[in-house]
Nucleic acid binder design. Structure first.
Lengths: 188, 188
DNA sequence: TTTGTGACCACTTTACTAATCCGGTCAATT
DNA sequence: AATTGACCGGATTAGTAAAGTGGTCACAAA
């Protein structure tokens, strides 16, 4: 069996279960049923192993987004479908939420840097899409940078933050509110 | 001169300059030109002094909001005027921002609890207004709780969070984006 | 008599040190 | 050649002594 893949899976599991700091290399080795030294034949160190997992996750997210986007369809239609597909990926969300928590509660630098990388990728991607929608005249004049940030934060609020005070929203509700605030506005 | 007021002003200044933890009672006494014991003739302890300042701030915020709201005017019109008036109060914003930073970086419980109180007051207020706008048919059907949270977070993003990666928005821009996302939506 | 004060006390936080833990290596093993 | 886990040194944590801070109160000033 593919030892490299075993290690990747075990590490991904541990990182999203315990966070970056609380994941030890001994533990990863144990979960992967592999000697600790074996990990270091595939990955230079803990940080690079973490980066690799994040990179895989980002590649997968980008693939999903690219697969769902149809250039001939309206911006909000594409947005909807990408959101829909992304919301299916529970494991990605779990790692993201765990890292958010770790960064907030313990201030682990690696967790914060990882989140920043993901956020920057998403923001870049969003910004490009908003820019195109703007050129096609599909949305009102605005600064794509600001709109991207607002879109990203709205996603976080609806999928994670709201759950502290409110029963979690289901996929359909998340999509509904996303559309309400971004596309139509509240005004009657 | 009014020693109680002196203490309140000194404490407010110190809290918004250094945060809750880094403000010592000796320091407050010194800034207020008052013996430390004097503080305890007006306030039972540090926490109650802090609460008093927060309470005053919340009372002032509520007064501003109540003063600007005209029951015969449209919801978004009122929202705009309240936002406009609130954005003028630099000292309130400074304390809020300092407490956010302290809560995030050091996890000071009192800072977090203080912020929570402010957030809950604002959310309650917003929820009531949204509920009324809903009954008047001024806005589309929605859950006032969710809309309130989104409005509050949008305010935070536009006034504070965005400043990390973007040049700070001026008052007019903040109002413009607030209106864009909440009232009209991006859709053409 | 009333109001205001800062030295003082008890408790908390911080600075320092010893003990433990964990990332990373490598000689031994398969 | 591939894999392993005992081992090493630097980092983290636990434990303790020292310093700091919230709160009191006997005394001073008005």
């Amino acid at each position: 069996m593919d030892r490299r893949q075993q290690v990747l899976q075990a590490a991904a599991k541990s990182f999203s279960l315990f966070g970056y700091k609380a994941t030890t290399m001994d533990q990863v080795a144990k979960i992967a049923n592999v000697g600790k030294g074996t990990i270091y034949t595939f990955f230079t160190n803990k940080e690079q192993l973490f980066d690799e997992i994040l990179r895989d996750m980002m590649v997968e997210m980008k693939m999903i987004a690219d697969r769902e986007i149809r250039r001939d369809r309206p911006f909000f239609d594409n947005l909807h479908r990408v959101l829909d597909a992304l919301l299916e990926f529970r494991s990605e969300q779990e790692l993201f939420i765990k890292l958010s928590q770790e960064s907030r509660e313990f201030g682990t630098p690696q967790a914060g840097e990882g989140l920043e990388k993901i956020e920057n990728l998403v923001l870049e991607y969003l910004e490009r899409e908003v820019q195109q929608a703007l050129q096609k005249g599909e949305i009102k004049p605005c600064d794509p940078k600001i709109v991207s940030v607002v879109m990203f934060r709205l996603y976080i609020v609806l999928t994670a933050e709201l759950n502290k005070t409110h029963t979690p929203l289901d996929k359909e509700q998340i999509k509904m509110y996303f559309h309400l605030f971004l596309a139509e506005g509240l005004g009657q």
